[in-house]
Computed example of a mutant assay.
Amino acid sequence: MTATRLRWWSWIHKWSSLICTIFALLLCLTGLPLIFHEELGPSPAIDEVADSGSRASVDTMIAQALAGRPGEVVPYLFYDREKPIVKIPTAASMTSAPDTFFYKVFDVRTGKALSADQPNEGFIYVMLRLHADLFAGIKGTLFLGGMGLLLAVSIVSGMVLYGPFARRLRFGEIRKRHSHRLRWLDLHNLLGIITLAWFGIVTLTGVINTLAAPIELMWQSNQLIEMAAQNSGQAQDDRKAPVDLVLARVRAAVPGMTVTTLAFPGSPFSTPTHYAAFLTGDTPLTSRILKPAIVDAASGEVVAVRDMPWYATALFVSQPLHFGDYGGLPLKIIWAILDIVTMIILISGLYLWLAKWRSGRAVVDAVGAVPAEPAQ
């Protein structure tokens, strides 16, 4: 590589890193507890009851959830993938923001209401909002996506610069007899190349996750409308089929899969005249990929079942890969260690820039302090 190209790549690496480093550090700090969100988040205590396979009436649970919330509606049902519970949120309207939901949690086997903290409160919720959108909504999410792209540029440019650097040293060598700054440079480069693949994957999947809102909007305006068009359904204010009937018919239409979410008519993920059920499989991969089913709200008949489009599937696959929550606790611990190493890389990179900047300032100050020669 020519000296000119090397300087050019060095300039790209320096400025792409400097611009995004603070935000990358924030994402690493907030992402660390989110790796263990299932262990640290609110989890209701469940009675030890033999699972006979029977399920309590969901309509009865919905009535209980609404009993203490006059004037509110239920926009969704959320089933837990690991535990026999269902979360039933109530809201002021079908289109209310999720952070305004009030949740009631029930045991699906007995229908018993369980005591649980609200998932939109507490430490994990604050960490999630900071990590996802800086409490700034879609603008914050897209801004963090832009920082993620800059971080990707920094990773690629760092990889390019590592080639010429590695020719001068043995792999893993730390020049301990040289200056403090050179030792940190060697450590920065070593940790960076070791974590290169992981850091790149987490950055890429993080950028994909910031596109969740546009991807959801694309699905709603395309596939959801196409599926619902196969049956026009009822008028919005007409009588609706019991939820128990809707769930039974969905499960019969898609055997071998589990309902994880049911969107009620009028919510953003359904239509005014249809329920939308979202199902997953039972393998590590299929448990993360949703399959939607559209149900006529009046009759409870399943109208259409389709696989998600490729762009939505890419989002579903990237989410567990980003947090490492598809391989149990051992993989989460590995993800946490790599996250801490990444923070060391980011902090050392910032230190190296500050040390070089101060060194340059010191040289300028020293030159400026030399008395000028008298005029001849």
Rank of each mutant, 00 (worst) to 15 (best):
D99H: 08
D99P: 08
D99S: 11
D99C: 05
D99W: 08
T100D: 15
T100L: 14
T100K: 14
T100N: 11
T100A: 15
F101M: 04
F101W: 08
F101A: 04
F102Q: 15
Y103H: 11
Y103R: 03
Y103E: 04
K104P: 00
K104S: 09
K104D: 11
K104W: 03
V105D: 01
V105W: 04
V105M: 04
F106E: 01
F106V: 00
D107P: 03
D107K: 01
D107R: 00
D107Q: 01
D107W: 02
V108C: 12
R109S: 03
T110H: 07
G111Y: 11
G111Q: 14
G111C: 10
G111R: 07
A113E: 10
A113P: 05
A113H: 04
L114H: 10
L114R: 11
S115P: 00
S115E: 14
S115V: 09
A116W: 04
A116E: 12
A116R: 10
A116T: 06
D117Y: 07
D117T: 08
D117I: 05
Q118R: 10
P119A: 10
P119G: 05
P119T: 06
N120Q: 12
N120C: 05
N120W: 05
G122T: 10
G122V: 10
G122M: 13
F123G: 15
F123Q: 15
I124N: 09
I124P: 02
I124V: 12
I124K: 11
Y125C: 03
Y125A: 06
Y125K: 03
V126T: 14
V126L: 13
V126H: 10
M127P: 00
M127C: 13
M127S: 07
L128H: 13
L128A: 13
L128I: 05
L128R: 08
L128F: 11
R129H: 03
R129L: 04
R129V: 02
L130P: 00
L130V: 02
L130K: 01
L130M: 07
H131P: 00
H131G: 02
H131W: 07
H131I: 04
A132M: 13
A132S: 11
A132E: 09
D133H: 11
L134E: 02
L134W: 08
F135K: 01
F135T: 00
A136P: 03
G137C: 06
G137L: 09
I138N: 14
